[in-house]
Amino acid sequence: MTAAVPFDAQMEMLESPASTAVIRTAGRLDASTASRLERVLTDARTKGSRVILLNLEGLEYISSSGLRVLLSARTQTRQAGGDVFLFALSQPVREVFDMVGFSAVFNIFDTMDQALQAASILAGK
């Protein structure tokens, strides 16, 4: 039996594009860890991030608690004229996204470069 990877979320503020943060996630985003990601996302917005790029490559599991945090972050950043871009979704997370229709709601990219390009365009508006 493979041990579950502990949840982790690390934020990095980018100099360019301006007002952009990258958050790298790993492990299980479930009912017991969703509040930790929520705090990191709130911290990113508090520090002035208008655009948030979420690296989901290391995220191996997501439940509805995690989905609600992502949706709430998207709503709040868009209300402030920004957005949340997701990239490098793992297969289990992509499957859940497809199930609940999030794949058609979020801007999702294969790579960080693609997400950065979209962030640059939004930052230039």
Binding site: L71, S72, M99, V100, F102, V105
Partner: peptide
């Protein structure tokens, strides 16, 4: 009841859990 074909705003943010269980 969550309906993925409806816009994901407001009250549509509830019901994910039951919907997932059914899926």
């Amino acid at each position: 009841t969550y309906d993925p074909s409806q816009p994901l705003e407001g009250s549509q943010q509830v019901g994910f859990g039951l919907y997932l269980m059914r899926c």
